[in-house]
Design a protein around this nucleic acid. Structure first.
Lengths: 169, 169
DNA sequence: GTCCCTATACTCGGATAGCAAGTGTCCGAGTATAGGCGG
DNA sequence: CCGCCTATACTCGGACACTTGCTATCCGAGTATAGGGAC
């Protein structure tokens, strides 16, 4: 059971977007550059987030991605489900109905499969934990715990891409 | 993020083995027959459980698998980890250290990555839920909730394989 | 000088190859058993 | 009749193809901008 790499990338991207000023957007190429990940593949995942209603996207020059809602209203679970799928990891194939002891009428299996119920319960606990934290929480955590040097470098890079844009105009 | 089918199969197998009389074992072929799953592939997974110390195996005629410990002392988490691996689904690649804002000394990243911490927390909640239920609990649940007809069929099949064995002798 | 038009360059969006891991299968090594043989 | 030996058949154990889904990439459609020209 392995989670897609895209989850880590997109959650980091959302956290960065949450730190941007209101109404500001950032193209996928810049997001990829900041996180040192392959740009085309990251774009694919960001599109999935746009489809899920987590990001809004603008085309053309000065275009890019931005959070569709305030960061505190976006849970990490939403991002994970947008990338990794909404269906639970465990899929019950109703083994108990098969084989020599199975084959009975559906009415004989009214109680849920015990293993299925347990797996669903564990899955629910997992999702509950991810739903309790928002992108806004993560952004605050980063702002509070990141070293001043790292924040300084991020700010410097952010200014650099601003002058890089104004140079073309 | 999809869990291996082998998890469902082996948990069902362990539950069945828990229902067997003390000291009784069952070969992989019978377990596969009862659950209507491919025997060779199930064998592969049962071997993983034997390696993990969950099952004991006997070779030769009258051989087979049996629980290595009392069913209440075997948690579902053990079975899941034996099949699906012990490492967490999410792997942090320390994205924050890469890119234009990264590249600082390791001492600048003493606080753990927020996303990493959250994912570990969710993973812990998931594992905790699976560790709270034992194979013995599942066996009791099945015995309490399965329909009398299903239990009757299982008993009939169990008797049938017994006479099938005695027929050869 | 102001407005409009056109060409441009940059953005997202979906469709397309490559690869790793899970899925499914097979055959060989080892062992308790069952029958036959000798005492 | 009893004990031993041998051959057997059945079991687990690890090594070998195949398929699905994640990984990585590219090119095309759409749009706001910037410059030039006309009024």
């Amino acid at each position: 059971m392995r989670m897609s790499k895209g989850v880590e990338w997109t959650v980091h991207c959302c956290t960065l977007l949450a730190a941007l000023p209101e109404g500001t957007n950032m193209p996928a190429a810049r997001l990829a550059e900041f996180h040192a990940v392959p740009a085309p593949y990251l774009t694919k995942h960001l599109q999935a987030l746009a489809r899920a209603g987590i990001l809004d996207s603008d085309s053309g020059p000065r275009g890019g991605f931005r959070l569709a809602r305030p960061a505190p209203e976006i849970t990490v679970l939403e991002v994970v489900e947008a990338i990794d799928g909404r269906e639970p990891a465990f899929t019950c194939t109703e083994i108990r109905r098969r084989g020599p002891a199975g084959g009975l009428a559906a009415s004989e299996y009214r109680k849920p499969c015990g293993i299925h119920a347990l797996m669903d319960s564990a899955d629910e606990a997992w999702r509950s934990e991810l739903a309790a934290t928002s992108i806004g929480d993560l952004a605050l955590y980063v702002a509070a715990t990141a070293s001043p040097k790292a924040i300084g470098r991020a700010a410097a890079w952010f200014q650099q891409i601003s002058v890089r844009e104004s140079k073309t105009s």
